[in-house]
Write a protein that binds this DNA or RNA. Structure first.
Lengths: 246, 246
DNA sequence: CGACTCCTTGAACAGCGTCAACCGTGGTGG
DNA sequence: CCACCACGGTTGACGCTGTTCAAGGAGTCG
């Protein structure tokens, strides 16, 4: 049985937003809060599975994910899917939306989701600030570094290692957001999502998860994941490599 | 027999550099050329196989590759390697060097290589310009988009598709630089490099290349690659997906 | 109740990896 | 000049990891 908790709503003002620290706007909010008092914002709730932005679109809105999970993906012509990354609260649905160029990927809601939508043109104007630009470069450096880690996962690691690293990477990001309870957290991914993110099939993910449960490394039930044997999981990784965070 | 042509040298002034358009400095060079007249630059030649920057280093130099090929990579604790991308003339050895933070990957010379080295601190100061920052964000968007493509390759495509896409992607970048002759170009990758970039083994790359030669799709000999049957290669890809460029 | 989603399990199979032997080329040193 | 070696590539035999296809079960929703 899966309990879908009611999603929280953002406060009136962005300046008091609990997830400020994870957004792309942080430095500007600190230095020029007046920009954010004036900024028009539209809060929308979107059901699970809905496509939020589509590849090829030229975005007119900049979305920041306030609550829930989403993911970036591309489709191949034969219908197969590659999930590029999971998006957690505080993150922009796409930094790319800050440019008026076509999206190179699509984004879909994984759970029900609360979005803050800003007008793209106005946001571009607002963020037109030297310190902010530098911050964006930093953000992108992080994103690229994460992409490198994921590339290494897909290129050089076994199914079990990939799954373990995905879980620990997500846990770390959730910890930073205060979204874990002890060693447990909400884990809304279907096995198909895990498979499409890690370059596997859902069937094989099922087998892999069974083995990980069997070994006592994890408990995964009711949409909730518990890291039961952290040391054991770390050993699976077999490598001091940093974890993907995105 | 492999003929190693003598590498070209950059002109006295960056402003006349034939590869300007591929660098990260383009907008600033156009708007404030005086900055580049004053900029100290050190031109160095580095032999094949030498490591140029090492993961964990905090870079004190910013390198732009003037001639030759290099690649970004990481090593796993068991010694296996993942090549993250190939670097072609005009590209920064690492945009990351623009921040005084530790490198998250290493870079090695694939061929003999000519580098232009700038003092990192000075370059950071020079590039401290709003339009330039915006350009850097654009550059990073491209890099991330390429990473997404490669991720999709490793996650969802067969060995043959990966190899074909790597070749066509490299060809496209070389065409832009005027480094192709008809359908042919210098191709200094060993099979091991291809394997480490694509998440395969060298043995399997050997078999894959044999099959591609057999089918008449490519001619690969003496460090030179010819796209013999472009249509055939495109069909192998089986997909209208854009090509990785980096 | 039926329809749907998600997961599990089995059996057969394929793609790619591993191990190992061998070959051609070019470079080096005696 | 030749012996030797290092390097990159090729090929075969074999097997593991992960895929494919298919059937069935458990939970949920209308």
């Amino acid at each position: 049985m899966r309990i879908s908790a009611a999603l929280p709503r953002p406060p009136e003002s962005c300046l008091e937003c609990p997830i400020r620290a994870f957004t792309a706007y942080l430095p500007l909010m600190d230095r020029r809060p007046e920009l954010f008092r004036a900024l028009e914002r539209e809060v929308t709730t979107i059901p699970a599975r809905r496509v939020i932005v589509r590849r090829g679109d030229v975005p007119t809105k900049v979305f920041t994910l306030f609550a829930g999970w989403a993911y970036r993906y591309t489709l191949l012509s034969d219908g197969r899917r590659q999930i590029l990354s999971f998006i957690l609260p505080g993150e922009l649905i796409s930094l790319r939306a800050l440019r008026a160029t076509p999206m190179t990927f699509s984004v879909q809601a994984l759970t029900e989701v609360v979005l803050c939508a800003f007008d793209a043109a106005k946001m571009r104007a607002t963020l037109n600030d030297p310190a902010e630009a530098e911050y964006l470069v930093d953000k992108y450096m992080e994103i690229c570094a994460e992409a490198d880690l994921r590339l290494t996962d897909l290129g050089r690691r076994s199914a079990t290692q990939r799954v373990a690293r995905l879980m620990l990477g997500l846990e770390r990001r959730l910890v930073a957001r205060g979204l874990t309870v002890g060693d447990a957290f909400e884990f809304p991914l279907r096995q198909e999502h895990i498979a499409d993110a890690l370059g596997l099939t859902a069937v094989h993910v099922s087998r892999t998860l069974s083995a990980m449960r069997e070994s006592g490394a994890i408990v995964l039930e009711g949409g909730r994941l518990t890291i039961a044997d952290r040391r054991g999981l770390m050993e699976i990784l077999g490598d001091g490599e940093p974890l993907a965070q995105r």
